[in-house]
Design a protein around this nucleic acid. Structure first.
Length: 279
DNA sequence: TCTACTATCACATTTGAAGCGA
DNA sequence: ATCGCTTCAAATGTGATAGTAG
């Protein structure tokens, strides 16, 4: 509890170690690092997300960056359909990126998403088997280009009709199939899902077009295996704040802050100071 | 020249296997 | 044998950069 308490109040002191310095990290500090990363990885991630949210939220919101899909003002981050309720994890982080225009890197060999797709489920039948999967579908039917920087303040502008979409691929959560009680026990992460712009991809990654807008859809299917999916039991959920523009390189430098704001070794060093360990 | 895309780099982070002692 | 833990190295993932294609 002491560690956690300190953890959540360490923003100010951490700012002193943000600047890259030639830290010497001893083996003993590495012990500390390993222990802390095991114990606090989960908390660190969420705290880091909060921090990034705070940084991004300081930027003035510009609705023009996301003309296709305005956020509803209701502020709810869960969606109920029938009995099943799906809640988007890290909703505040998604919204923070959304206000400045979320971008997702796509590469030839596949890139993970940040923020990651992570949801929690409720309302499932505890003993029934379910398959949970994600696909990513176009948010509109146009493609975009970057506005000429010195002639306009708007970053994106429409550049014609969208390219024909390659066959839609799905990413099946690796726990599938599993019983409802398993899915509801803790949140599900689609961390390892990868996005590619390689239309000939052989690895099963999700194929997208650069400079197009998409959003992820989450499917919850009552089925005993991915091969015996019954179409009637298909339920689909999506969240407006998860809309993103696929890019091959970040266009808005703000969206690239990710780890650089709060790298792990800063956490380790911070705690090594806190515990009075030499570095 | 300009924009979108790609290969490469340095290094952060994860993963997995081996070692060790209680 | 098993467990918890450390140690080490290989594998993987990342954004920045510089270069390429059209």
């Amino acid at each position: 509890n002491t560690v956690t308490h300190h953890h959540h109040h360490s923003q100010v002191s951490l700012s002193h170690v943000f600047s890259p310095a030639p830290f010497y990290v001893s083996n003993y500090t590495k012990h500390c690092f390993n222990w802390l990363s095991n114990k606090l990885l989960h908390e660190h991630f969420h705290f880091s997300c909060q921090f990034i949210s705070a940084v991004l939220t300081n930027s003035p919101a510009d609705p023009r960056l996301n003309p296709g899909m305005p956020l509803s003002s209701s502020g709810t981050n869960s969606y109920q359909q029938g009995c099943i309720r799906v809640t988007l994890e890290d909703s505040e982080l998604w919204k923070s990126f959304h206000t400045i225009g979320t971008e997702m890197i796509i590469t030839k060999h596949g890139r993970r998403m940040f923020p990651q797709c992570s949801i929690s489920l409720s309302g499932l039948q505890p003993l029934a088997n379910y398959v949970v999967m994600v696909d990513i579908v176009p948010a509109d039917n146009v493609k975009y280009k970057l506005a000429v920087r010195h002639s306009s303040k708007e970053q994106w502008e429409v550049a014609g009709k969208s390219e024909p979409q390659p066959p839609c691929r799905t990413y099946i959560h690796p726990d599938s199939p599993a019983v409802g009680s398993h899915w509801m026990k803790q949140s599900l992460s689609f961390l390892k899902m990868k996005l590619t712009n390689n239309t000939l991809d052989q690895h099963g990654h999700i194929i997208l077009h650069s400079m197009h807008r998409y959003y992820p859809r989450f499917h919850v299917i009552q089925a005993d295996s991915p091969h015996t999916v019954c179409w009637g039991s298909f339920q689909t959920f999506s969240f407006p704040e998860t809309v993103f523009t696929a890019v091959t390189a970040y266009q808005n430098p703000k969206v690239a802050i990710k780890r650089h704001v709060f790298p792990m070794h800063c956490l380790a060093l911070h705690y090594s100071f806190y515990f009075g360990l030499s570095t």
